[in-house]
Simulated scan of single mutants.
Amino acid sequence: MKKRVPAIVLLWLIIDVYFFAAVQTLTANTTIYLAYWLFDGLLGATIVFSAFTGKTKVISWLMALMLLSFVPKLIGSIVLLLEDVTRLVRGFPPHSVGVSQFVLIIAGVFFLLLLFGVTRGRHYYKVRRETLYFPDLPEEFDGFTITQLSDIHSGSFSDAEGVQKGLDLVNAQKSDMILFTGDLVNNHAAEMDPWIPAFAKLEAPYGKYSVLGNHDYGDYMRWDNVNDKHANLQRLKNVHKEIGFRLLLNESLTIDKNGESLALIGVENWGKGGFHKYGDLEKAAARVPNDAFKVLMSHDPSHWDAVTMGHHQHVHLTLSGHTHGAQFGFELFGFKWSPIKYVYKQWAGLYEQSGKYLYVNRGFGFLGLKGRIGIWPEIAVLTLRRK
């Protein structure tokens, strides 16, 4: 984070300078000029100071303020750039007042959208539904429903009413089974303690099951000793029991329904790059018959391409999370974009390849940015159908 902050602030400064041309075109008021630069200057300096002093709780709010300042100006600067291209051809006449007014209106609209995201977006839950068809789905599971949750990040919660709104939506789906694909906490198992009673009330007739995500191991903080870290992980495993979830640690079990069954497989976290590779699909699926219908829970979607697709067993459906959709982007008329797409090939929603499906959940909670902008918190409901 420390290495990225100077580059982010520098880019922000460049956009600030460019956007200021529109302000200068519309007014010569020095008080407005002073307020423009004073706000961003103080905010940028505070972000740099907080990043280098380790004040992570403060910096998440500061980054939200930075987005409120940066993104509207970035969008407005694109319009200014188009005008400057025409000014180049016309010999650089003064900036158009009409264009500058339009730029400020566009920036204002995006500011309001961002403001909603950082104030209300974190609990603006969306129920997303997908129906998946499989020729070899056992007949008794035709119409079987799964509600998937991912990336709860309870350490970020502060609004009990907002969280309960999401949990009520989960139970309202009345799905046959609830699956949680990791990151229950940010770092500490104790972060979940205030929320245990609420999450324990989630209900599903065929059970609730879970796996661990990269944040659940406590790898992103400094512990006094190894024993404390191990004790934290053990406590987190007990928390899964207390909220009624059967935690799968590189293992599988059978879900039975009227004499037929499907295999539910859960691997520990396995991530590309610098992420730990605790997951072991070979071990987890060792006792699963080749002809079984298989549902795999694997927190990081990069595991699908890297391991699952090449596995000797046909894994019909993989459920992942991890990306959060970067908590920033947009989804309109079937088109979706987020900066996370340049890091993860599969980052949100449903993917299919060679008759195998992957669903990447956008996440129930939030981390870092104290909100969600365009990529809303998700409750996924998947219906299995037999062709």
Rank of each mutant, 00 (worst) to 15 (best):
V343H: 06
D176Q: 06
V343R: 14
D280N: 14
E331T: 08
P301L: 00
F366E: 03
G143D: 13
V71E: 01
V343K: 13
Y125M: 06
L249K: 14
P289E: 13
S154R: 03
G365W: 01
W337N: 03
T25I: 07
N171F: 07
L104K: 10
L296A: 08
E242N: 13
H123S: 11
A200K: 12
G155I: 03
G273T: 07
L65V: 06
Q24C: 06
K2G: 00
W195E: 05
E203R: 09
G155R: 15
E130Y: 03
L167Y: 07
L179W: 11
L42R: 15
L26V: 04
D216T: 06
M177N: 02
L367V: 10
A200C: 04
H240L: 01
P135A: 08
V315L: 05
D176P: 01
P205R: 11
S150N: 11
F39K: 14
T131N: 13
S77E: 04
D216S: 08
A263M: 02
G368T: 10
L382K: 04
L249A: 11
I375N: 03
Y342F: 15
L369N: 03
G355Q: 02
L113D: 11
Y18E: 00
L319N: 05
H312D: 03
Y209D: 00
I8T: 09
R222W: 12
V163K: 07
A22W: 01
W304S: 07
L11G: 12
I78C: 14
T147A: 09
L74V: 08
A204W: 06
I265Y: 00
H153W: 13
I379E: 07
W12M: 03
G274T: 05
L74K: 03
W37S: 06
I379A: 08
I146A: 04
A326N: 12
T323F: 12
R90G: 00
K241N: 11
K257N: 08
G325N: 04
L115G: 04
E282V: 11
S298A: 15
G325K: 05
A348T: 02
R128D: 06
N258H: 10
A292L: 00
G162L: 11
V211P: 00
V99H: 07
E83V: 02
Y209H: 11
L74E: 08
F364G: 09
Q24R: 15
V127N: 13
L236D: 05
F111G: 00
N361T: 01
Q164K: 12
N269M: 01
K126Y: 09
K272F: 14
W223Q: 13
A45R: 08
G368I: 01
E140A: 14
H299W: 04
D291M: 06
G91H: 09
E161V: 09
Q346A: 11
A22P: 01
G329E: 12
P72A: 00
E282K: 15
F293T: 06
E352D: 09
R4Y: 13
D228P: 10
